[in-house]
Amino acid sequence: MSTDLAALIDSLPLVDHHVHGASAHDLSRTAFEELITESDRPVPGWMTQFDSQVGYAILRHCAPVLGLDPHASPEEYLARRAVLGADEVNARLLEASGIGHFLIETGYRGEEILSPSGMAEVAGVPADEVVRLEAVAEQVAADGVEADAFAGRFAEALWDRTRTARGLKSIVAYRHGLDFDPAPPTPEEVTEAAGRWLASGGRVEDPVLLRHLIWTGLERGLPLQFHIGYGDPDVDLHRSDPLLLRGLIELAEPTGVPLLLLHCYPYQRHAGFLAQVYPNVYFDVGLGVNYTGARSVAVVAESLELAPFAKLLFSSDAWGPAELHHLGAVLWRRAMSRVLGGFVDAGEWSAEQAARVAVMVGAENARRVYGLGAGA
């Protein structure tokens, strides 16, 4: 592996194009372990979440940042974390990540984590917002609206809410699945569906309304992110295959709006195909990198198989413990160094080509797609 290439990748100010805030408070062992898994069930008493790829990665890569030897025990790690306190832990791990710009999606339990401005203050780098469509719709409903006025109120609220945002996100994969009718619903269908939803309450799950939110988002014109694949048990994994979005991708193509497929594990090869054949599709393997730990090199390698390199972005999808923000960057850098360095060592790529791809995926593609301007 080229030492020059590894040094370039290690020093690259990454753009984390899909991430959430870090935990603003100290965490008990129980709380910490529940936040380093996508399970929403309590951790059984006979096991620990540290005995996992992500757990071992924390003990290997985060322990030294907090002043411990690599491979510290969970007890040593959590004791050190408690002594330092949440503010110091966040500052150390976010700085060590080398992330130069955060695009923070704020629609999930935002009151428990740092806001974009809070992240910018702690990390000392820019942090912009990505707005979740479903969260805006649910706020419109909570504020009170009649069914026949819902579409107009949602559009007004979305435009107002996104005045300074860099992108939008849909969690239709969670709320229904990606196997929805891709065509925009009629105004009459939206009013009827809004009436049913507003009468019953709860979160927005009606596929007609979810389609309407997506098409209103496309009208807004900001890059539109979609959760794909791996997530907590609220997602039906076989209905979150990105190939199910093909109809929407084709109908949305004339809008020119970039569609960004997030996470994608275990469907990263499907996402690579879509990014290859459709000019409006981009993807990342963010969440899968953290949770595959020592095996994340294979995930990153598969993400580089089909898609043009201008269509692939970096993300961590970290939420909560700042360890996940740090690991997202560390494991991605490690994987890219090994994969691209292997191409160079085998004589398949030049060192210059490898460096170009690392910079594109790590920062330049996101800066272009989201209009962030030149990096530092």
Rank of each mutant, 00 (worst) to 15 (best):
M1W: 01
T3G: 03
A6N: 10
L12I: 05
D26T: 09
S28D: 04
E34D: 06
T37S: 14
R41P: 01
Q49S: 13
S52D: 10
G55R: 04
I58W: 00
L59R: 04
R60G: 02
V65H: 03
G67T: 07
E76Q: 15
Y77F: 15
L78N: 01
A79Q: 10
A82V: 08
E88I: 15
R92F: 03
E95K: 04
G100A: 08
T106E: 09
G107A: 11
R109S: 10
V125K: 12
P126Y: 13
R132C: 08
A137F: 10
D143F: 00
G144V: 00
V145C: 11
E146L: 06
A149S: 15
A149C: 06
W159P: 00
A165K: 02
A165L: 02
L168R: 00
D179K: 08
P182I: 02
P184I: 13
T186G: 07
V190E: 13
G195Q: 02
R196A: 12
A199H: 02
S200Y: 01
G201C: 02
E205Y: 06
I214D: 08
T216G: 10
R220N: 14
Q225F: 03
Y230K: 01
P242A: 13
P242L: 11
L245T: 10
L248C: 03
I249M: 13
I249G: 15
E250C: 11
P258H: 11
C264R: 02
A275H: 05
A275W: 02
G286A: 12
G286T: 07
V289T: 10
N290L: 13
L304P: 14
L313P: 07
G320K: 09
L324P: 04
V330L: 02
V330K: 05
W332N: 03
V344F: 06
A346T: 07
A346Q: 06
W349N: 10
A351F: 08
A355F: 09
R356K: 15
E364D: 15
R367N: 13
V369A: 12
A374I: 11
